Structure formats: structure tokens, C-alpha cells
Computed example of a mutant assay.
Amino acid sequence: MTRNDFAPAVRWLAREQDRVTTVAQLAAAGVPQSRLREWCRPGGRWQRPLPRVVVLQTGPLTAAQRSRAALAFAGHPQLPAMITGAAGLALHGVGVAAPPCGLPVVDVLVPSGRRIRTHTWARVHHVRGLPAPDAVAGVPVAPLVRAAADGVRESVDPEWALEVVRELVVTLGVPAPALAAELGGAVLARRPTVAAFLDAMDCGPRAASAEPMARALVARAGLRQPLWRPTLRFDGAFLGSPDAYWVRDGLVLDLGPGTGRGRLESAGLRVLRVAPAALTRSPGEVVAALRAALAAGPYGPLDRITALPGAR
């Protein structure tokens, strides 16, 4: 078989899979075993960073390629697997997600019962039930809160763990109770600074009373009902969990820290910031501001934003 017989198929794999493929895929494409061994030798044109995985280039892998390689090692796409932990957070766009030091590890979730085990930097976690993955740049990734919990659980750097939790809650708007529940008591007991931060975020006036007052004010004013505490996704990726969101208008109501105002505004949404005290001191002004914002809308690329209902 000549090189030209398999070259188009190899080019297709390189283009579609960010140059990350497997021995089985290359064999199916017609690459002879002798050619594969030759090109994967030291100094060759390809490399084998993990068993059964071939990267169609030389030199260091990008973070995305490492994630794809770890998934291929775990059997994806033939078998279920997804990226989690620090690598998953990085794919979700969490700014502080890069591992603090040393060779980056890619964490992979697979169903319990699979015989695959951790190998070098591909760390395999066996779980009884896989969560529904998010598709980020064509890579299956654990939901943001799950990826954060796995990253915090595995981290040996308590300062990094706290920074991850702070970014999720303060910048991205992940509800502190949801994150605490996913982490669990055992992890929080080992992370006292994380536990104290989540307690502080969940005990302020916003969590205790602002939302019920806002719901009552919107109802009395006869305004269109928003979704309360929804999860917003932009092109499938987590965007935020604001206090309220008017789906037809692209309007967000922000009652305090933690909704990720900058991230929501960068997506084109209108964010109306209302101090909790204003709900009782100047409710008429709040209603007028809401009416004006709704009348001036809609805002943002609404066709690219998905809103999932939150707690009632």
C-alpha cells in the first residue's frame, strides 16, 4: 500500500480531531503497522503520548490536545468518558483553572466497572453514574460544578482551590449552596478556607431575603415573569446563574455579588443591578427601572443563549 492510499484519511483525522487519533483509527485508515512504528520512533513525525493514542505531530501538546488524548486513551468515543477537574475547568473557560505547578494532569471520568486505569498524566476516575456532559469545542466535559468539585477534591494547593471556588461563585454566578453540595462535607472539612467562603456567600441578605422580595415586587407591578435563578448557557457553555432573567428580552436582574455581571454583559445581555435595600426603600424606582429596561430591549444574541429553569 502506498502513502497516497491512506494520506487523505489521515489528513481528515488530523483536521477533525485536532491531530489526536488512535492506533485503531489509523489502522482503519490503512496505515501499515510498520509505517506507524517508524513514524512514532524518537525523532519521527508522530508521537504516542499514551497507550493506543497517536498524535500526528511532534513537540508539546496543547491543553486541548492533552484532553483529547486522555479521552482517546479512555476509549472515547466508542465508550463513554468525559474530562473533569482542572482540565475540565480550563475547557469551560475558568481563568484560574491551570494547574498550579508541575506536569498538568488530565482527569477523566469513566463508568465504574471499566478496567482502564490511570496512566502517567491521564488520571482515570471510576464513578457509578456519569453526569450528562457539556460539549465544549467538541470535547465532552463534566458540568461546571462537577468539574470544579473534582478539581478542588484532587488539588494539593489550598490557595488554588479557593481561587477556583471564588471565581465560580463571584465571577460566574454559580450558587454557593450548589457548589457546597457537590463538594460534600468530607471535602469541605479538608478545605476550611473554601468552607468559610461558601458559608459567607450563602448567609448574606441577598440569599436570605432579597429574592423573595424581588419576586413579590415583580408580581405586584404586573411585569412579565422572569425565570428565577436559571442557569444560562452561551453556545452550550456555562454563562451564569443570575437572580432573574427575562428570556424574551435578554434582561438580567442582579441582586448582589455573585451573578458574574461582567461575563453576562460581555455576552450582550443587559444587567440591571439593584441593591437589596432598594426593594423596600424605593420599590417604585426599581419597578420603573425594570419597565424601562424591558421596553428598551431585547438585548444580546438571544438565539445563542439557553435558559434552564432554576429553583422556584
Score class of each variant (00 low, 15 high):
Val252Trp: 04
Asp235Phe: 10
Ala196Leu: 12
Pro226Gln: 06
Arg248Phe: 00
Ala181Tyr: 01
Val156Asp: 09
Phe197Asp: 05
Arg248Glu: 15
Glu163Val: 10
Phe197Ala: 07
Pro212Arg: 11
Gly173Thr: 08
Leu172Ser: 00
Ser155Ala: 15
Gly173Gln: 07
Met201Trp: 07
Val194Gln: 06
Pro177Asn: 04
Leu144Pro: 05
Glu182Met: 10
Gly258Thr: 12
Pro242Leu: 10
Pro226Glu: 06
Glu154Asp: 07
Val164Tyr: 05
Ala149His: 06
Glu163Tyr: 07
Ala237Glu: 12
Arg248Val: 00
Phe234Asn: 08
Ala176Arg: 01
Ser209Leu: 12
Asp254Tyr: 02
Asp202Pro: 00
Gly184Ala: 10
Thr171Pro: 00
Arg220Val: 14
Ala189Glu: 14
Ala181Ile: 01
Val174His: 06
Phe197Gly: 07
Arg215Trp: 10
Gly185Asn: 13
Arg215Thr: 02
Leu144His: 11
Ala148Asp: 07
Cys203Ala: 15
Glu167Asp: 14
Gly173Asp: 02
Arg215Tyr: 08
Pro242Tyr: 09
Ala186Lys: 12
Phe238Ser: 00
Val247Met: 11
Pro230Ile: 03
Trp228Tyr: 15
Asp199Cys: 02
Met213Cys: 07
Gly258Pro: 04
Phe238Lys: 01
Thr171Phe: 02
Glu163Cys: 12
Ala186Ser: 14
Ala207Gln: 13
Tyr245Gly: 03
Val187Asn: 05
Gly184Cys: 11
Glu167Trp: 13
Arg190Trp: 00
Gly240Ala: 05
Pro205Gln: 09
Val170Asn: 04
Ala186Gly: 03
Asp249Glu: 15
Gly185Asp: 15
Arg206Phe: 00
Leu168Ile: 00
Ala221Glu: 05
Arg229Gly: 09
Leu172Glu: 04
Thr259Arg: 04
Val152Ala: 01
Asp157Arg: 08
Ala214Glu: 01
Leu162Val: 06
Trp228Pro: 07
Pro177Val: 08
Pro242Glu: 08
Asp249Phe: 14
Leu162Thr: 06
Trp246Ile: 09
Leu232Phe: 04
Asp199His: 12
